[in-house]
């Protein structure tokens, strides 16, 4: 069976000051060609000013079956949010 190249995840910064966002993936044999493929696929309409490509195999993802243990414990830490604190209205700049 004819083979395909490795998979790379593509991140695009749409303009200066914004962070890179994941937009999809490309297949490519190496980093340089991966960048070219990302450019030719995902920035044909002036969508980006900067590109990252990351070998998909290097991404370490959290396990969806452990969502609860990973993320639920943050739920009741309401004191981390500014609205948790009652400050009288006449106190300014706080």
């Amino acid at each position: 069976m004819p083979k395909d190249w490795p998979l790379w995840e593509v991140f695009v910064r749409s303009k200066g000051g914004l962070s890179h966002r994941h937009v999809g993936s490309v297949h490519a044999p190496d980093p340089e060609i991966a960048l070219r493929h990302a450019r030719d696929t995902y920035t044909r309409r002036m969508e980006g000013v900067s590109l990252w490509v990351v070998p998909s195999a290097s991404i370490i993802a959290s396990d969806p079956s452990e969502d609860a243990a990973m993320f639920d414990p943050a739920e009741d830490k309401i004191y981390r949010h500014p609205t948790f604190y009652n400050i009288p209205d006449h106190i300014k700049h706080i």
Partner: peptide, 11 residues
């Protein structure tokens, strides 16, 4: 040779 290369050549 691949869809990606297709895009490069068309560009």
């Amino acid at each position: 040779p691949s869809v990606e290369v297709d895009l490069s050549l068309a560009n």
